[in-house]
Design a protein around this nucleic acid. Sequence first.
RNA 1: GGACGGGUAGCUCAGCAGGUAGAGCAUCGGACUUUUAAUCCGGUGGCCGCGGGUUCGAGUCCCGCCCCGUUCACCA
Length: 488
Amino acid sequence: MRQNRIRKMERFRARGDEPYKRKFERTHAIGEVRAAFEALEKQAGPGEEVVVDAVLAGRIVARRVQGKSTFMDLRDESGKIQVFMGEKQVGPESYACLDDLDIGDFIGVSGKVHRTRRGEITLFASQWTILTKSLRPSAEKWHGLTDVETRYRKRYLDLVANPEVMDTFKKRIFMIQTLREWLLERGFLEVETPMLHPIPGGATARPFITHHNAYDRDFYLRIAPELYLKRLVVGGFEKVFEINRNFRNEGVDTRHNPEFTMMELYEAWQDYLGLMDETEEMLHHVISRTVGGEEFVYQGMTISVKRPWRRIRLYDAIREYAGIDLELTRDRDEAARMAERIGVEIDSTMGYGKIVDAVMSEKVQPHLVQPTFLYDYPIELSPLAKRKPDNPALTERFQPFIGCLEVGNAFSELNDPLDQRARFEAQAALRAAGDDEAQYLDEDFLFALEIGMPPTAGLGIGIDRLAMLCTDSASIREVILFPQLRTL
RNA sequence: GGACGGGUAGCUCAGCAGGUAGAGCAUCGGACUUUUAAUCCGGUGGCCGCGGGUUCGAGUCCCGCCCCGUUCACCA
């Protein structure tokens, strides 16, 4: 089949017609000409014929040949239009060359746009030219491309065969743009911090390791930008954010890709409750703009982002949904017994914090369909968050959940350098005890805190998960253009 | 890493009682100037994921491996 197409390509060349053209001047994108035509039709009187002259370019996605007339569907990024070519209209010589076209080829066409008798907006061609010859067929016209592995490994085929996939990614793009504009309008400055970290910090996760040859040092792909963004706040930036990739060397599933996109912001003079208000406003704005309303459906769940959102203390949520009161104890073993009694599996390596976290994910999270903030987390789970003044076992931290997905994480940032050092040391002890996800001690970050970071609140939003919600995608791979698969 | 499901033509899929590998679409040839999943007639096309085994004979049964999906474990 490929050989056949190469022969056709060569025939164009033999006729002195380059099959891989350079620039092509269009008068309209396909979507534009459709809109222009429909607008004129609305103005036109009854029986009055509407015609638009147009030069269009696009990929042939379907072809219906009828002897001396041929219909094709032509698609560009903005839409699809039917093209009619008649032997009389384009000339017999040019018409004969249509034999050398295939589905997948790019052509340029000029002519007049009318409606056919059957009501289809159609470009009646007077001339056409090959722009790019395709040498391989992509997919079947009716079923498209459904093989998930091919869709992910060869995303270009997915985009060609399944137009709704492009819609999904355009929604993601729009969502990020809306988020960025919201932040910029409120005076946040977008910054870029390193991807290569000498010490991986800012989250509890296993890092990817790489090597710098000239320095002969190992570096880690960042697991979070947090500690660098806070250094900027130390330096005097008061409102900063970054939208960029994080890398975590963990398992891959429908909600986790090894590289994922995170928005992190830091705001001086703010605390977690104030930031909760801002987060609610921000997510409400971004989601409702992206899905086109305050309600949307995610995996069969109807979700309303109408404000105000529910706010519930983590321990209260556990009491409500798990029926146990973990706040009564700080003892690891007792917490483990309570968790096991309600069927949550606990293993001996889990500390108090992880037990609370396990109960939350298994018993609480599945109920958080409508937007909900959980807040006030135990200190063991939050080594970078400020303690609550009235209860040093808790931190000023919250997480927004929507559609049972955890979409973010925020807290009043710990800016007491001595407390931060003690927390890092506790993490180091966990690490020594075999927890390879415990956080590393970053001496320079502590130095920065000793210089002084003003009161600050920080927020991270998982962009991919937000995109999943806005596009009703069951898997994170549906919202990442090139998701990570095993190399073949 | 475990469990379950899957890998057959370019695409979407059938075939499993072990007996020469099938359909639709695409493609190639023929008819057709208003079709839109066009229609009608005829044709081409396959390391049946990879490797081993059982058998006269394996897409089909057995063993090992690879890849994908779902899920559990770990995590965001």
